[in-house]
């Protein structure tokens, strides 16, 4: 596929920034080209056909062409079927977008992750306004890390032995679960059952939800190299208000 040209490519807007007087710089996540930076000329003019269309969390079909790092958006079409995100699910959506913007390199196709993202957005669109969709966030984080090549080791420990649901482990970066020695205490531990639940994307147990959240937070902090996510900072501020 020539990189500078796409026609009717399924994509979602991740973020937009004003550019010059009437244009927009748009970061999109497309199915076959991954994350792409596009320039939407005149998109901020009052009567622009693109106005209101280049909105995050909505499935679009985009066409673009050009050379260089930023390509020219030629056409955008609304696909539909995705309810608008409102309330806390909207903040969850921002979190997904920020993870993609920070961790996904430009123009690296991730069709599997794209489909997962679309599914999760759909689910977020149907979630209650006052609930954080924890399970959706965990599923996405796992899919993202897996697709980037940082896949989690969840059903076997670091030596290859099957995970024992009744045992306790500690998760070591780039190594996986390490069984705790008898009497070994302290630090941060995760139960075998949680690891197995995560492997099945099953977050129905509250214990699994909270342990998985901690594990993911530590893993992401590692891969984000200390960068603090704006969406999470804001969410914390919100809870404190």
């Amino acid at each position: 596929m020539p990189r500078g040209k796409a026609d009717g490519q399924r994509a979602y807007v991740l973020h937009t920034r004003p550019y010059r007087e009437t244009s927009l710089l748009v970061e999109v996540f497309s199915r076959d080209y991954g994350r792409v930076a596009l320039l939407a000329r005149g998109a901020r003019r009052p009567r622009s056909a693109l106005r209101g269309l280049l909105m995050g969390f909505q499935p679009l079909e985009l066409s673009w062409s050009g050379k260089g790092e930023v390509l020219n958006l030629i056409k955008a079409e609304w696909q539909g079927g995705q309810p608008l995100l409102m309330g806390l699910p909207l903040f969850c959506g921002y979190y997904l977008n920020e993870l993609l913007l920070r961790l996904l390199p430009r123009e690296d196709p991730h069709p599997f992750l794209f489909e997962r993202y679309a599914q999760i957005l759909l689910h977020l669109g149907q979630s209650p306004r006052h609930q954080v969709a924890e399970a959706d966030l965990r599923c996405f984080e796992r899919a993202l890390l897996g697709d980037l090549g940082y896949g989690l080791r969840l059903d076997r420990d670091w030596q290859g032995a099957a995970i024992d649901p009744g045992a306790a482990y500690r998760y070591e970066m780039e190594r996986g679960p390490v069984g705790l020695e008898a009497g070994e205490a302290g630090g941060w531990i995760i139960s075998g059952q949680t690891l197995l639940d995560m492997a099945r994307d099953d977050y129905s147990r509250p214990v699994s939800r909270s342990e998985a959240k901690q594990l993911m937070r530590r893993l992401l902090a590692y891969y984000l190299d200390g960068v603090e996510l704006e969406s999470r900072k804001l969410f914390k501020e919100f809870q404190e208000l």
Binding site: H15, F91, Y94, Y95, N97, E98, L101, E230, S231, K233, L234, F235, E237, F238, L241
Partner: peptide, 15 residues
């Protein structure tokens, strides 16, 4: 307005 990805939160807005 609140804009999570631009670091624009309730504090910055002076709520």
């Amino acid at each position: 307005r609140v804009s999570p990805l631009d670091g624009m939160g309730p504090r910055q807005l002076g709520l």
